[in-house]
Design a protein around this nucleic acid. Structure first.
Lengths: 226, 226
DNA sequence: TCAAAAGTGTTAGGCTTACACCCATGC
DNA sequence: GCATGGGTGTAAGCCTAACACTTTTGA
């Protein structure tokens, strides 16, 4: 036993980490935040932000803390995704990872400058680099969960500022679903659900008619609808 | 350090367990399998079947093994539910539990005789005893997940034998949803999805007309439908 | 005055829901 | 022959999907 190995148990214990798949829309592309690893294993490869659970720390708090430490991002919507635990998924030791997925609007992205040889960057989901560990699997699951939740929850609003136009909202749906939607039907459908309301203010954005802005009626939480 | 504490790490590691919420229908009631605890903590109280992960064991394999060891039940449909990890959820040490939910038909229930002071029994979900740990929370989440999946997956068939009548199937839906359904509309709807087919055989069950029996077209897997 | 995005209704068809009686069997 | 659950169709209304032009602004 190494002298530093000071935490001992009568049975072997796995390590526990959290990893976060943070989505946003940049330009016209759904994108994910990745970290370039500064240490082995997979040194120099890209990976999801995440890291080891502190022993007295709640799981979600760990995910938030790691995200903050590695990228400076705070206050995003976070939801548990799935727990990955294949025995060989980490070459160092047995590691169980509780994966979270998160959404944020792109203008809240103040990436921390590179520190201790790690570096964060956004990648469009269709142009991901090779990924460390089983992080490609995690991202794939996060994408399908995000898609599924689009149609029965208010999750899409997490990707927009608190006031937005219907065109912006439609654009979010179109990018996530990767399909064009009919403008009149989209507006009718969204408004009929009663989950957003007019703010009374307008967005003046260029040489065209100003757009009404809307806000979520209950902005505090992602809800299951319909 | 205790002499028996032979597994040592440079940082503290939590323990990892799996717990299983196994549903079935008994009589007219949705029911859950519980184990009476033979050891502290919560000795003598009822709890979900489950236990500690072996260090080289896959998560789902752990859930299946614990279910088998504690109840003798094998080959049930199992799906990861959520990971519970509040720091104080176990008084012994930090324990992360990956919860699974499972369904089985009631005639596959060959409960093992009581062994090493543990004992398994079925409880209707509306008549649960006081539960150890945070197991009441786990069960509540499992119930809502089960309900949600009823309408967009083939999960309900896991609770029936491989050949069943439409009346049996309707009864499963009615018990899970806790509401009466229209017979003609239910049959139309189920048959229109094309997920079950007639077997050509009949169930002769009492002093009334025999019922056609049906089987799932693709019995290998629970699918997302519609 | 032109370009660019915002805003707005109607119709056809499909899906959902409500609803009641005859059928085959065992006793 | 009667009690028991099995089996079947239709019509109304609601929801969904298709579809094009006018409005407001800045340059």
């Amino acid at each position: 036993m190494n002298q530093n190995d000071s935490y001992c148990y009568p049975y072997p214990h796995p390590a526990v980490t959290t990893d976060v798949v943070l989505f946003t829309i940049r330009g016209e592309a759904l994108s994910i935040l990745l970290i370039r690893r500064g240490n082995p294993p997979y040194r120099g490869m890209w990976a999801l932000p995440g890291g080891f659970l502190d022993i007295g720390e709640d799981l979600e708090a760990c995910a938030k803390r790691e995200l903050q430490e590695e990228t400076g991002i705070e206050g995003v919507y976070l939801e548990q995704l799935y727990t990955f635990g294949k025995p060989e998924r980490d070459p160092r030791e047995r590691v169980i990872s509780i994966a979270y997925f998160a959404l944020t609007q792109s203008d809240r992205l103040k990436l921390k400058p590179a520190s201790d040889a790690t570096r964060a960057a956004w990648f469009p989901v269709d142009q991901l680099p090779e990924l460390a560990f089983d992080h490609a699997d995690i991202i794939q699951l996060a994408r399908s969960r995000l898609l599924a939740k689009l149609n029965y929850s208010t999750i899409a609003f997490q990707i927009l500022p608190s006031r937005f136009t219907l065109s912006q909202l439609q654009s979010v749906y179109e990018i996530l679903l990767n399909e064009r939607l009919d403008k009149r039907n989209f507006r009718k459908g969204i408004l009929a659900r009663g989950i957003i309301k007019e703010t009374g203010e307008f967005s003046r954005n260029g040489s065209h008619r100003p757009a009404k802005t809307y806000a979520v009626v209950n902005p505090t939480r992602v809800e299951i609808i319909k």
